[in-house]
Design a protein around this nucleic acid. Structure first.
Length: 702
DNA sequence: AAAACTCCTCTTTTT
DNA sequence: GAGGAGTTTT
């Protein structure tokens, strides 16, 4: 009975995926095949039919956003609170475990979590000291990160190195970097995983405890796991082998972040008898879109075979259009969006434009502005990444963890406390000589230095930080507000930035200080208040996991998609192809693929060739649209005339505003007929779309 | 300590 | 072509 309720409205494969709990399960889920639904339903099946406790299902998502969605879905299905559940990213799970258990590894549990920015700062500091060319810091940070994602700690790396050249330097920096983290009582994101693995390997009792806590494991986006993450999961799963991983190898687009596609094979090897279920019915795209996307991805080899199909057969062919310049491309897209919008079938929020690199968005923004269309660009600098936010958070982190040298260096002269580089390096040396934290070194220096303006401001700084660490603030907001005022930092900011900090403070209202810090460290941005009717602009990477009725993918040119810096290796090209595939499969009804012969990249305009990926599909799947710039301009004109009729008797035209006696003001989306017989489609803000015959209604044109 | 100047770089990115 | 960082100038 419960079974029927929980699997109602699901297809046979989805049902099977939910009901199979005997052993390890591998779900190969195509784009739009309802994998999130399957995970949520499986969770509730485990609880309602199998009697598992909601806290004993270890559920992993790729992003925090996905975790929130999953929680909400499960909450609705179970009608139970999901707050204490283990539904989240692996990093947040590890943080939860480490805050509790890290003492047994000799750390303290008030550790700071460093983000990429902090890592870069630390590495640069080290490079300066080692007198290694500082511009290398980015490469080094990413090398260290990928070493950690493969569970290669500094010791292991050192011993593996008969290294020469760069590797030797890297090893030296890596050792020092990890040492600095340890001294500063800080972990970077990769440490969260690596240390949890270390914890489980060194402390079998702790591992047993967590193995015992969980009766089932659900892992979404398994293709995006790193080696370290896989090892962690394997440790936890190994006892009873009740796990279900969901993955799509065709959407593996995060190799650069250390994701390892071999984990898919490892899972089946490490858990023999794994049942494989394929979800191949797409509930998203039309058959035409699936055909085109399928033709693209089919060029990649060594994939798991998969045959996506849909009941939404037919649909429009995929549109393809080539332009002279990227400006024309952008203009045309704006025009198409406007026309579709005015027809009334779609809202602005139903449109998305994807591109490979952020700088492609510029031209598009101009064009959309020009047409007066509302849009938002996703994935700009995240809120927590802004300088002013990071600065106040650094104050907060230092108050919680005095050892946090990276945070201290960040704010010691912010606002200016008159500390010059001589004094600073004296403090650094003092800290090093006595192997104490910078914070303690400052205190020591203050004790035996003569009175001065610098001494006063430093004394005040120390007092401030100590005040807040001793003080039990009621909430993170209270602490932030006080720090912001009393540190004198507020005075150094302009209005905009003050407003940002205030936004941070209000988001901290009523939250526990440590929880709030964790939240900031583990989340990328403020949960986007995505509401509102906007066209979405984003990179192909950002598009993963989303869907839109109408999708445009722009810049389909050699050097852009595939991107020029990803064209050397074969693996890189296949990843670019998957990226394109991910973009295509986001679309429900309409898909446009565009490119241009001339595109402005950085300073100069470059000549562009059509992307090799287009060759795979144009012949059979695309409807090639001629542009205004070709000789057939008349065709465009006729299309336009249909949409915006301009005969003598037409009283209203698309885009004009009218007032209705009961529904208020609305925008005309589409018109039919003329004179007294004219019928119009009007969108009213609250009521929605309405068809109106003008002779029956007393409309006012405004 | 701020302003001016030069140099450099410039995929994608979640945690 | 713009933003960031580091260096030199005032």
């Amino acid at each position: 009975m419960i079974k029927e309720i929980l699997t109602h409205g699901l297809n046979p494969q989805q049902k099977e995926a939910i009901l199979y709990t005997k052993g390890p399960l591998f779900i190969l889920a195509g784009a739009g095949s309802g994998k999130t639904k399957v995970i949520a339903h499986k969770f509730s099946y485990l609880v309602n039919a199998k009697g598992l406790h909601t806290d004993s299902v270890f559920t992993v998502t790729f992003t925090n956003k996905a975790a929130e969605e999953m929680k909400a879905r499960i909450r609705n299905l179970l009608e139970k609170d999901t707050n204490s559940c283990w539904i989240g990213t692996l990093h947040s799970h590890c943080n939860r475990i480490l805050r509790k258990e890290i003492k047994s590894l000799g750390h303290t549990n008030n550790f700071s979590i460093y983000d990429e920015d902090d890592q870069c700062n630390l590495v640069r500091h080290i490079l300066k000291e080692f007198k290694i060319h500082e511009a290398l810091f980015k490469g080094i940070v990413s090398r260290i990160s990928s070493l950690k994602s493969s569970l290669i700690g500094p010791d292991k790396f050192l011993s593996s190195g008969d290294g020469f050249g760069f590797d030797e330097k890297l090893a030296k920096v890596y050792v020092r970097y990890q040492d600095e983290l340890r001294k500063g009582n800080a972990l970077d994101h990769d440490d969260l995983i690596m240390l949890t693995v270390e914890l489980f390997e060194k402390k079998p009792k702790v591992l047993e405890k967590y193995q015992g806590m969980f009766s089932y494991f659900l892992v979404d986006d398994f293709q995006d796991t790193t080696r370290a993450q896989y090892c962690l999961l394997k440790l936890l799963i190994s006892t009873h082998k009740k796990a279900c991983v969901v993955c799509d190898d065709d959407q593996f687009i995060y190799r650069m972040r250390g994701a390892d596609i071999h984990n898919i094979g490892s899972f089946e090897d490490d858990f023999p008898g794994t049942k494989v279920i394929k979800l191949e019915q797409s509930y998203r795209s039309t058959q035409n879109i699936l055909n085109a996307a399928g033709a693209v991805i089919a060029q990649n080899h060594g994939r798991r075979s998969k045959n996506l199909w849909t009941k939404k057969d037919g649909g429009d062919k995929v549109f393809h259009c080539w332009f002279h310049t990227c400006e024309e491309e952008a203009k045309h897209i704006a025009k198409v969006i406007k026309e579709l919008y005015l027809k009334g079938r779609y809202d602005y929020k139903d449109f998305a434009v994807f591109y490979r690199v952020n700088l492609e968005a510029r031209v598009l923004e101009d064009a959309l502005c020009h047409e007066g269309l509302p849009f938002r660009v996703l994935g700009n600098v995240s809120f927590y990444h802004r300088k002013e936010i990071k600065d106040v958070v650094a104050y907060m982190r230092l108050s919680v963890n005095h050892g946090d040298n990276v945070s201290l260096r960040r704010i010691i002269n912010c606002p200016s406390r008159g500390i010059n580089s001589v004094l600073l390096s004296r403090i650094e040396q003092e800290a090093k000589r006595r192997s104490i934290s910078l914070f303690d070194a400052i205190k020591a220096t203050l004790r035996d230095s003569p009175a001065s303006a610098v001494k006063d401001s430093l004394t005040e700084f120390v007092k401030l930080i100590e005040h807040f660490s001793s003080l039990k603030c009621r909430s993170a907001a209270e602490m932030l507000r006080n720090l912001f005022d009393k540190s004198g930092y507020a005075k150094t900011l302009d209005e905009d930035r003050v407003r940002n900090v205030e936004e941070l403070i209000s988001s901290a209202e009523g939250k526990d200080i440590k929880d709030f810090l964790d939240h900031i460290s583990l989340c990328t941005g403020m949960d986007e208040i995505a509401a509102g009717d906007y066209i979405s602009l984003m990179t192909l990477h950002n598009a993963k996991g989303l869907e839109f009725p109408v999708v445009f993918i722009i810049g389909l040119e050699e050097g852009v998609l595939p991107y020029c810096k990803a064209m050397e290796g074969k693996d890189e090209i296949t990843e670019e192809r998957r990226l394109f595939y991910v973009g295509m499969t986001r679309s429900r009804d309409i898909l446009w693929l565009t490119g241009a012969s001339k595109r402005k990249l950085y300073a100069k305009v470059q000549d562009q060739e059509p992307s090799r990926f287009l060759k795979d599909i144009i012949k059979n799947c695309c409807e090639c649209v001629e542009t205004i710039t070709t000789h057939h301009a008349t065709k465009q004109e006729t299309v336009k005339r249909q949409v915006v009729p301009k005969h003598a008797f037409a009283l209203y035209s698309a885009g004009s505003r009218v007032k209705h006696p009961t529904w208020g003001v609305g925008v005309v989306r589409d018109c039919y007929g003329d004179g007294d017989d004219q019928k119009i489609t009007v969108n009213f803000p609250i009521i929605g779309l309405k068809r109106i015959a003008i002779k029956f209604v007393n409309l006012e044109k405004i």
